[in-house]
Design a protein around this nucleic acid. Structure first.
Lengths: 107, 107
DNA sequence: CAGATGTTTAACCGTGCGGTTGAATATTGT
DNA sequence: ACAATATTCAACCGCACGGTTAAACATCTG
């Protein structure tokens, strides 16, 4: 997929966000990644596949072990999409200010 | 709700992102918001409710008309969550550089 | 080879999603 | 009062999600 929708859908699950976070501490096997979670390995395996299909995780098979690595690039799109609305969450603090900011660009 | 998970789940749908975008051009009624979409009004009404429950849209009823306004605050959490991984998508461009950056903080 | 280890696959389950249609509920305007 | 307008509600549909368990597959090791 690799679309913004699939990226957002992938990271909307807390388990998958935790997996992403885990992979910032370096590559890890599926079993290692699964260890902290109170769910079956098969369930984590599914989560990993969702992340993989969304392009957020890269898998390299070496023997029976699958090593997972974070591929953070799609998160850049998420950040830049959210950043579009920065003025709306800052200016929302003062409603009138936001109104005039839209009438005439700020700064 | 108002959690990161519910925010992400809400914005993972392209129709709902389009609604958010529409509301940056100012408040609008449900019917106005629904106009561009090739789906029933009831479907859009559901989308609006998802956004409302996620705290992304504020509704003010005036007579039979419901006026919707963007409430962008939850998007700030999304942006800051994604920003955590900035180093991983920038440094990932040069794998070795990322490795040393983790061994010893960059800059 | 046999057994342990790492991982996925398959079938299933309950639940929620995104959509529909049709009816109900409010409110406005003539 | 009546009809039009704005919106939601309810029931339904197909499908995907997040989880389970049991089996299969692949690889390593004694």
């Amino acid at each position: 997929m690799e679309t913004l929708s699939s990226t957002l859908q992938a990271i909307s699950d807390p388990t998958r966000r935790a997996i992403i976070d885990r992979l910032t501490r370096g590559p890890a096997r599926v079993t290692d990644v699964a260890a902290p979670f109170a769910m079956s390995l098969a369930a984590v395996s599914k989560h990993v596949r969702v992340l993989e299909k969304a392009g957020l995780v890269r898998r390299t098979r070496q023997g029976r072990e699958h090593t997972l690595a974070l591929e953070a690039a799609p998160l850049r799109e998420v950040a830049s999409w959210a950043a579009r609305y920065e003025q709306y969450w800052t200016e929302r603090l003062d409603r009138l200010e936001a109104y005039f900011a839209n009438r005439r660009p700020p700064r």
